[in-house]
């Protein structure tokens, strides 16, 4: 019994320490700019929603948020559309090359983004893709594609083969088999994969910071703009950050187990 409470104390202390910076950000978002920088730090204060109002009133905030939503959803949809047929093919009609292809797909993830920054920047400039949503969607979908394929592949393989073979006996074409049997059966797996992809695209910073400036800039770029010296508005920064973080954090909490599976490329189930 004693050890149980000692464990609980250790666990809660560790959890509190890890979560504290986020809690502090959340609290600060309800302070005025003056209480936000008060020394000693204000623990008890009159909460205000002014910061949220101020952030939401900014005309450009809506645009940054819309860009984030469009880019995250667009990249995820494109990646799913390309990955589902491939994962289906590899899970149910494996050939001698399947293992090699899977490993090769994983290997594309090993290419550090910074190694190809220059050519991508020049190509995007050449084709007018700089600072466009479609430009970011293309990059993001290609960079999550290996993870999406791997996750779908591992979910599809859990679908009993007999079900698909029975459909085939009944004369279903591969297309019908895919759309009317496999996809409905693996809906939870596809949802988890989509969530993971949305989270990764939402938080993506390297390409957003380097390839967008204003028109297609996402919330990662917006929050980064608070790093300039004249942008020392902590309460507003906190409010903007809380708004940008909260939905994704909730998605992350929901899909934490799938995250382990997707990001370890099946090494952990």
């Amino acid at each position: 019994m004693r050890t149980k409470w000692a464990l609980a104390a250790a666990g809660w202390m560790a959890a509190g320490a890890m979560f504290f910076p986020l809690l502090w950000m959340f609290l600060t978002s309800f302070k005025t700019e003056i209480t936000a920088v008060a020394t000693p730090p204000a623990l008890i204060f009159k909460p205000t929603l002014d910061n949220y109002a101020a952030v939401l009133e900014r005309a450009d905030y809506a645009q940054f948020a819309a860009n984030s939503v469009v880019v995250a959803l667009g990249s995820t949809l494109l990646a799913l559309a390309v990955a589902i047929p491939a994962a289906y093919s590899m899970a149910f009609f494996p050939t001698r090359r399947t293992r090699g292809v899977l490993l090769w797909m994983l290997s594309t993830k090993m290419l550090p983004a910074v190694g190809v920054l220059v050519p991508i920047f020049l190509l995007w400039r050449r084709f007018g893709l700089l600072d466009t949503r479609i430009g970011l969607v293309l990059i993001n979908s290609a960079s999550v594609l290996p993870i999406v394929v791997w996750m779908l592949f591992s979910y599809f393989r859990e679908v009993p083969r007999e079900i698909l073979e029975a459909c085939r006996m009944d004369g279903a074409t591969p297309r019908e088999e895919l759309f009317h049997v496999l996809l409905p059966l693996s809906k939870p797996g596809i949802t988890a994969t989509a969530l993971l992809s949305i989270i990764l695209c939402w938080n993506e910073a390297f390409w957003s910071l380097n390839l967008t400036t204003v028109r297609a800039a996402t919330l990662t770029v917006f929050t980064a703009s608070f790093s300039s010296p004249e942008g020392l508005f902590w309460a507003k920064l906190s409010a903007a950050s809380t708004l940008a973080t909260a939905p994704i954090l909730i998605f992350g909490w929901i899909s934490q187990r799938q995250f382990a599976r997707g990001l370890s490329f099946g090494a952990v189930k």
Binding site: F19, N203, L219, S241, L249
Partner: peptide
């Protein structure tokens, strides 16, 4: 404990 991983790096 896992929350920080889901926060965007700029934030």
């Amino acid at each position: 404990v896992i929350a920080p991983f889901f926060v965007m790096p700029t934030v």
